[in-house]
């Protein structure tokens, strides 16, 4: 179990690095927010895997909060992009 969780976390970290490449490259805000969302989701996934290894249940609220922030943040940025373009 320990080995599997470690492999999962390393793989997720590599995925987060890939997503960061897109966040840096852009070219527009919409691309960056999609990429940053994905980094957060991969992070929450890694925490969930940690929860499976340690049996500590505190990962649940963290995953809930990440899911909420990803949604609220994306909607906010989408609104901002639409507002920016009407200016």
């Amino acid at each position: 179990m320990d080995v599997v969780v470690t492999v999962i976390q390393i793989t997720l970290a590599l995925g987060a690095l890939l997503a960061l490449v897109r966040a840096l490259k852009g070219p527009d805000l919409a691309d960056r927010i999609v990429a940053v969302d994905l980094v957060l989701i991969l992070l929450a996934g890694g925490l969930a895997a940690q929860g499976a290894r340690s049996g500590v249940e505190t990962f649940v609220p963290v995953v809930v909060v990440v899911a909420l922030i990803v949604f609220a943040g994306t909607v906010l940025v989408a609104r901002f992009i639409e507002w920016r373009d009407t200016q």
Binding site: V4, V5, I8, T11, L12, L14, G15, A16, L18, A19, R22, D31, V34, A35, L38, I41, L42, G45, A48, A49, A52
Partner: peptide, 15 residues
């Protein structure tokens, strides 16, 4: 968990 990892990493590769 392994399936979820593969799926999420493919998403990162995709973007």
């Amino acid at each position: 968990m392994v399936t979820g990892t593969v799926v999420s990493v493919l998403a990162a590769w995709g973007i």
